[in-house]
Design a protein around this nucleic acid. Structure first.
Lengths: 222, 222
DNA sequence: GTCTATATTAGGATAGAC
DNA sequence: GTCTATCCTAATATAGAC
């Protein structure tokens, strides 16, 4: 396993070098590399350049530290999707922007998709945590996840106007996200099957930036 | 975490109740539930109904046991895909069959996709292991993974005949697999976002069986 | 706030009886 | 082959000096 420290995991340029931040950044890097269960507190302390006892001083336990990292990563994952999906632009442009945003983001943070999938599959508490993040449902008609409603409306409009084949909004979104996220989550597998090294994978993703928008939009032509 | 013992993990109906098989089945169930790093040998022994020392008698170490389970799961994942992809039928039928086969398979073994993704992301040895399973490349022109070549030939033919939009074979396959596998790997996440319980997810997948073939084939219409 | 030193348990692995 | 008992390291967590 090649070490790959993350200088700015959130990618938002917050560079306050408090000890707490250093620890959280280090935990971020380590948890994403080897998974929560596989990570060692000592390894995180080393990566942060601080003493192991400090991790407990700031976060009390490994579990709390893990929760903090998960929160940050999950928020990052949904933030862009939400912003684009809620913006006031036509559906086709949204699709193009979501694809571009995700592919670009994961080139910078390649471990994030796999990490979130692993974490959510292996730790039941994470589902609850994610639920509290995306918010409880407002009512029976207003879905909890706000951008789902915005998307559904636009899809229904285009379908009604005969500009798009009918598709359930959740299938629409599932397809879009699958196509963007899966190759990153399954990168080690794809690298074996397609014989790609790091450069080869980057090339594969570049290729994909052109392929995906046409593929997806074409799929819904009437 | 709800326990969900797997009666016949491989789904091939091999029911020889040797102790070794019982242990492997138990390890299979536990590793897929909580991940390799998160699993405890004691937990596996309990699930198998045998003494912890027996695990070491048959498999020497946790790592070897983990490798055995990974081998079995990965083989199962590629077996169906390979069989269908190499069969002597037209491309459109292949696509339909691959989708149907995967969705049906994962309804029976819901943890498999997430497990393989986690395992391959968190343990570098697995890439090597998978590589030795799918085989080394035969030559520069013959790809290692045999069904890739078969698919590529059919794609090129259809593209040349003007029956399909041009697409790189690896992008074709990546799209197909992404659409089938991702929703299972990301099931806990989708369940939160789309507010689905177990029954709801089954319904979502049923819906998907109809959506995916049309979506995919339509995407490649000229 | 940050360190050193230590407590305490967990968990993989083995020895040896049967 | 299967069990009981035990070893021993690794790993989380805390106490207490500075």
């Amino acid at each position: 396993m090649v070490k790959q420290p993350i200088a700015d995991p959130t990618g938002d340029g917050d560079r306050d070098d408090t000890t707490e931040t250093k620890i959280l950044d280090a935990a971020h890097a380590v948890f994403l590399r080897v998974g929560t269960a596989g990570a060692r507190m000592q390894e995180i302390a080393d990566e942060a350049g601080v003493n192991k006892a400090l991790l407990h001083y700031y976060f009390r336990s490994k579990e709390r530290l893990a929760a903090a990292v998960f929160e940050r990563v999950a928020r990052g994952l949904f933030a862009r999707l939400g912003m684009v999906a809620m913006s006031d632009i036509d559906l086709e442009t949204k699709v193009r922007r979501i694809i571009a945003a995700y592919l670009d983001e994961f080139v910078r943070t390649p471990y994030a998709p796999g990490y979130v999938i692993c974490e959510m599959n292996q730790n039941p508490d994470r589902a609850q945590q994610l639920l509290s993040m995306v918010g409880a449902p407002v009512s029976d008609t207003v879905p909890a996840v706000p951008f789902l409603g915005a998307l559904a409306k636009q899809i229904d409009e285009r379908v009604a106007a005969g500009q798009m084949r009918p598709i359930a909004p959740r299938q629409f979104l599932a397809n879009l996200v699958s196509l963007c996220v899966f190759p990153f989550a399954a990168r080690p597998m794809l690298s074996v099957v397609f014989r790609m090294d790091d450069a080869g994978f980057r090339e594969f993703i570049e290729e994909r930036k052109a392929v995906l928008p046409e593929f997806f939009l074409n799929a819904l032509r009437p």
